[in-house]
Design a protein around this nucleic acid. Structure first.
Lengths: 212, 212
DNA sequence: TAGATTGTTAATCGATTAACAATC
DNA sequence: TAGATTGTTAATCGATTAACAATC
C-alpha cells in the first residue's frame, strides 16, 4: 500500500443487491423508523445478514454500534455511490411496448433516471406522447441529444437494428447504453454497455424447475 | 464417492451464459456450419474461451478432438439441459405494456416457452387478444390453468398486487413464477421464483458510469 | 508433421461465511 | 449488566484461470 490508498473495489454482486436494500430502507424511512440492523434487513430480503453488513460497510453506510445502520444516512450513502442522488437525463430508442413499459415505470425517479425523450422511426409513433414523453424521429437524435444534454441511452429496438443504432449513438458521443435487445453490442472501450438479457433469467428458472 | 455418482451441479453463472451460446450456435447452424470451437465462440461472445469450453463440457456437449464442439449436438445438449426441447405452457398475469411486450417477443418459441393465455382485471383489456393471445379476467385463473394445463406464470402486475396474486397462483398449484414486479415474493419451498429486477441492471450501469 | 483444439488436473482469486473482539 | 449488534480479521468455498497432456 502506497501513498495513494485506492478505495477497495466494490463487486458487481454487491452493486446489484443495493437497490433491494434501498427499497426496504425507503419504506422504513417513510414509516419514521431511524435504524436498520443487518438482521432486520435479512428478514425482509432473505439475504444473509453478514452479506448485508459487508455490503453496507462497503458503501460507507453510517451506523450506531449495537443498534444498526442509520436509515437516512444509509439511503444517502447508497444513492451517492450509485449516482442516484441527482438525475441523469436518459432517452429511449424504440417506442414499442417495451419502451412504453419503461416510460410508464415511475420508479426510475428514485433511481437517478429521468427519461426525457423517446425516438422511433414508425410514422404512427413519431410525434406522439407516451406517458408525457415526446417521441421524436430517430433522424433527430444528434440534435435532441445536444439540445437536452442527454447522457444515457435506453435501447429497446428489435435485435436486428441494435448494432446500427449503437454506432449512431457512439458517434453522437453517448457513453452509457442500457441495452434490452438480445444482441451483444460492439462499442469503444470508453462506452459502458449494460446488457439486459431476458433469456438468462428464463434459463435460470427452467433449470431450477427441471431439477425438482 | 459412493455407488450413486451425483452429477456435478452446474452453476447459475454457467446457466445464464447458455442462452448466449445458443444464439450464436443457431445462427451458425442456419449457415450450415457443423463445428464450433471454443475460441470461435469466444470471438463472438467476448466470453473467455476456457469458460466456454468448461460450460459446454458441463452440459455434456459432444465434440471432436482438435476440431471443436458439434453444433447440432451442442444445441441439443443445451436445450435438453434447460428443458427447452419441448414447450412449457405459460401464461401472463398483467396485460399492460410490459405484458404486451413479452407477448410480442417471438424468441420464446426457441426458449421452450409458449404463452397461451393472459389475465387482467381491467375491463378494457379483458376479452381482447394481444398478439393472438386471449386476455381472460383474473377471476378465471383456476379454471383456465386447469383446462389448459398451464405450468409457468409470468408476473407483470404492479408491485402492490404481486404478493396477493402470487398467493392465488400457489393455491392454484403453480410451481414456477417468473416475476417482473420489483417485489420479493413469499412462496412455499417447492415453488421456484425467478426474480427479474430491472433496478439491479441500472445500478450496475450507473456504478460503471460513475467510476469513469 | 505441426498446430489447433479438447480433456483434465492443478493453481489462483475473490466472494461468502465464520469467528470473535469491541461497544453501548 | 447482559445481549444484540457492528467492526474486523481469518477461514472456507467455489468459480475462474492456468497448465499441459492427448488427439487428430
Amino acid at each position: 500500500m502506497g501513498l495513494f490508498s485506492k478505495k477497495k473495489q466494490i463487486s458487481v454482486q454487491t452493486i446489484r443487491r443495493l437497490p433491494q436494500y434501498l427499497r426496504v430502507l425507503y419504506s422504513w424511512h417513510a414509516y419514521g423508523r431511524g435504524l436498520a440492523s443487518s438482521t432486520a434487513l435479512a428478514d425482509e430480503t432473505q439475504i444473509p445478514a453478514i452479506v448485508i453488513k459487508k455490503d453496507l460497510q462497503a458503501v460507507g453506510a453510517p451506523s450506531k454500534m449495537r443498534a444498526g445502520f442509520k436509515i437516512k444516512g444509509t439511503i444517502s450513502a447508497i444513492e451517492n455511490f450509485l449516482g442516484w442522488d441527482n438525475l441523469n437525463k436518459a432517452f429511449l430508442i424504440g417506442a414499442g411496448h417495451l419502451g412504453a413499459a419503461l416510460l410508464g415505470f415511475s420508479g426510475f425517479k428514485n433511481h437517478g433516471l429521468e427519461i426525457v425523450a423517446a425516438f422511433d422511426t414508425h410514422p404512427e409513433r413519431v410525434g406522439n406522447e407516451i406517458h408525457g414523453v415526446h417521441v421524436y424521429h430517430t433522424a433527430q437524435l444528434q440534435r435532441v441529444i445536444d439540445e437536452k444534454k442527454l447522457k444515457i441511452a435506453i435501447l429497446t429496438v428489435p435485435g436486428a437494428a441494435a448494432q446500427g443504432i449503437t454506432d449512431t449513438l457512439v458517434a453522437c458521443g453517448i457513453k452509457a447504453i442500457w441495452n434490452f435487445a438480445p444482441v451483444k453490442l460492439n462499442v469503444p472501450a470508453d462506452v459502458a454497455v449494460q446488457q439486459e438479457d431476458i433469456a438468462s433469467g428464463l434459463a435460470e428458472l427452467c433449470a431450477r424447475l427441471k431439477s425438482k
